[in-house]
Computed example of a mutant assay.
Amino acid sequence: MANVVAARKFGGMISYNPHDWRSHLLDIRGSMLPEIMGRVALCVGWSVLVTAAHELLPPWIHGFSLSVPSTVHTLIGTALGLLLVFRTNSSYDKFWEGRKLWGGMVNECRNLARQATTLLTAAPELQRELILWTASFPYAAMSALRGAKALAPSSKDLPQADVGAVLAAQHMPLAVAQRISRAAVTARNRQVISDQMLMLFDQNVNLLIDYIGACERIHKTPIPFAYMVHLRRALILYCFTLPFVLVEPLHWWTVGGTLLVAFVFFGIEEIGVEIEDPFGFDENDLPLERFCQTIEGNLLAVMDPAEPKPWPTSGNGDEQN
């Protein structure tokens, strides 16, 4: 039974130097351009038709002037800008909350490993089991958020019957947490640790469950449907009526003006869509697989400090927490 992360290529946060404009200014990957290209092209094509009709056909053919005053469009544009800012800010709040939750998960896994190595020295087999299950918790959390079934590579050293039961569980993170608690309770029953020490382990496990629950709340709660639909309808109406406002003062430059406005507005909206659920495979999502590898490497190193463990590198400091 497979117990490693699926072979599918994971997405994740793109590393870049914020001080260097030249290295990423023309990048396509992660820039939202592929996602919005079709919508922008439709707006530009429509602006070409409107401009051609205005410039090349005499007014008596289309029966009325294609140019309209800009007053109403300006007012709508102001409201639309505020809506886009609110949309993006709401999405970034979810992105940043997700990052903080995974940082907390990193810390609690390290706390569990620290407690195990200091409090369970009299029961090395339980110490090893608790640390290995703790190393698998972030993998189980990542799999639950991504609709997969996988545990840490180091889970091969755990009882395979338990590994199979966890992989078949309805909620994998909860099943892993149960086994962490079971190892701590077994240590208490053997009088390796006291009731007070057991409570320390239980507090850390409770926090892990709280973190994955909060991540699931973010994952399963998109922006309200009515807000999303109204914003997109307003965007379409604004961008497709823009050529009628620009055609009189700009003439053929209307095509370029429409291109710029559509690119900016559709891009902002698409950024909000991509980052509102930061646990997926998109280029701007959180690098969960790197977080999992970091936790596993830390815990295996604590469990066996004599054996050097590889440290995952990313180039942007995300390996810490």
Score class of each variant (00 low, 15 high):
Y92Q: 01
L120A: 14
T186F: 10
V245H: 09
G77F: 14
P249E: 06
A41V: 15
A177Y: 00
H24N: 08
H73S: 13
A183C: 05
P278L: 00
L80W: 12
D20M: 06
L82P: 08
G12K: 01
F279L: 02
L120G: 12
D285E: 03
N189K: 12
N298L: 11
G104R: 02
G213A: 10
L151M: 00
L26W: 01
S90F: 09
G317I: 05
F10Q: 14
M303Y: 04
Q127Y: 05
G77M: 08
V264N: 13
V40P: 00
G213Q: 03
Y238L: 09
S67F: 12
R87N: 06
L299Y: 10
D318P: 04
S15D: 03
T294R: 11
F244G: 07
P249A: 01
H54T: 04
E55C: 14
P124D: 07
W96N: 02
V48R: 00
Q191T: 13
K94F: 04
P278E: 01
V176K: 01
T294P: 02
W102P: 02
N284E: 07
L75Y: 15
W311A: 09
P138M: 02
C109T: 08
W21T: 14
S154C: 13
L119S: 11
P305Y: 01
L250Q: 15
F95P: 01
E216T: 03
S194P: 03
L300V: 07
S155L: 05
D162V: 11
G272I: 02
A301V: 08
G63D: 07
L25V: 13
P34N: 12
D277L: 05
Q293W: 03
G280C: 07
T186L: 12
S91H: 09
E216H: 03
G272S: 08
I295G: 07
Y92F: 09
P138S: 03
Y238R: 09
D93Q: 08
S155Y: 11
R232N: 14
C215K: 02
M13H: 12
L101M: 01
S181D: 02
M1F: 05
A301M: 11
S194A: 05
R128H: 11
T313P: 15
L200F: 00
R217F: 11
L151C: 04
P124L: 09
P153H: 00
Y16N: 03
L242H: 14
L42S: 03
M172A: 06
Y139W: 04
P308F: 04
W96K: 02
E283I: 05
V72K: 13
S90R: 13
T221E: 12
